[in-house]
């Protein structure tokens, strides 16, 4: 895609923005939990350096969507390709995709028995086989980036929620991923801590990281999102720029949902 698409074209989920080139592609993806279909024929592309915000009511399949992208859930039909690697039963592919994608969870999921620095350096040392000294240098740099270098030697339980979530971001970044997935990173936080986490995420977006963010922070969406995806009942209902969603969403369901969260 040589020219920047105009807003109208962006209403198709498979048209991307960003620095050219598609890095994530989902085609006709279905996902079942038993008889219940959590994803229905999802088609979507994400461009390099693009920031996509996913919104939608509870149970609409947002988490399932991004968890399929790093194979925390197995999709049942369709294709998911991440940075040229298709996810299948191939353990090599799974390993490669997980190495290239970082994930941040709602509940932080830090490892409570390891210090902050060990949390951050564990994966580089074990997966990338980075030497300890090098890993620690890198780890401190990541902590620097999320503005908590002084907490390196504490244990997670000794930090505030906002600090913990920033450690979680640093931990994911330490693997130097090409894509970052965020699943409601601020919804378990006290209101006064939400901003510090959002700041770190905005900073990250400015460095050109490809990001898919499930969040209802529409301020964040407006500021950094290239596109917003609205999901309901396992389907992508509407796609567009944040501006589009604020000014004239086309679907009734979207309007109803937005009226509830704004």
């Amino acid at each position: 895609m040589s020219t920047e698409p105009i807003a109208e074209e962006l209403r198709d989920a498979t048209v991307t923005r960003g620095a050219g080139g598609v890095i994530i592609e989902l085609a006709q993806v279905d996902k079942f939990f038993g008889d219940f279909q959590a994803l229905k024929d999802v088609n979507m592309k994400v461009g390099k350096q693009e920031v996509v915000v996913v919104i939608g009511p509870s149970g609409s399949g947002k988490s399932t969507l991004i968890r399929c992208i790093n194979r925390l859930e197995e999709h049942d039909a369709g294709r998911i390709v991440v940075d040229g690697v298709e996810l299948s039963n191939d353990i090599k592919a799974i390993r490669e995709v997980r190495r290239e994608t970082g994930m941040v969870f709602q509940q932080f999921n830090l490892f409570p028995h390891l210090t902050v620095l060990d949390n951050v350096t564990l994966a580089p040392r074990q997966v990338r086989k980075t030497p300890r000294a090098e890993a620690e240098r890198l780890g401190r740099q990541m902590l620097e980036q999320v503005k908590i270098p002084e907490q390196a030697d504490k244990y997670p339980a000794q930090l505030s929620g906002g600090q913990q979530q920033r450690v979680a971001i640093a931990r994911a970044l330490a693997m130097q991923p090409k894509v970052m997935l965020f699943d409601e990173p601020t919804s378990a936080l006290d209101p006064e801590m939400i901003n510090e986490v959002l700041e770190s995420m905005k900073e990250l977006a400015r460095t050109g990281m490809t990001m898919i963010v499930v969040t209802h922070e529409m301020g964040f969406a407006r500021e950094v999102a290239d596109r917003v995806v609205f999901m309901e009942e396992g389907q992508i209902v509407e796609v567009g720029t944040a501006e589009h969603f604020f000014t004239n969403p086309s679907e009734e369901r979207t309007k109803l949902f937005l009226s509830q969260i704004l």
Binding site: D12, A27, Q28, N43, G78, S88, N89, D90, I91, K92
Partner: peptide, 22 residues
Amino acid sequence: MTAAQAPARARPPLWRDVRVLR
């Protein structure tokens, strides 16, 4: 829908296939 072409799923070699390994 742009992805009109039927998505074919790649088959990994047996020794790397999670299901086979299980």
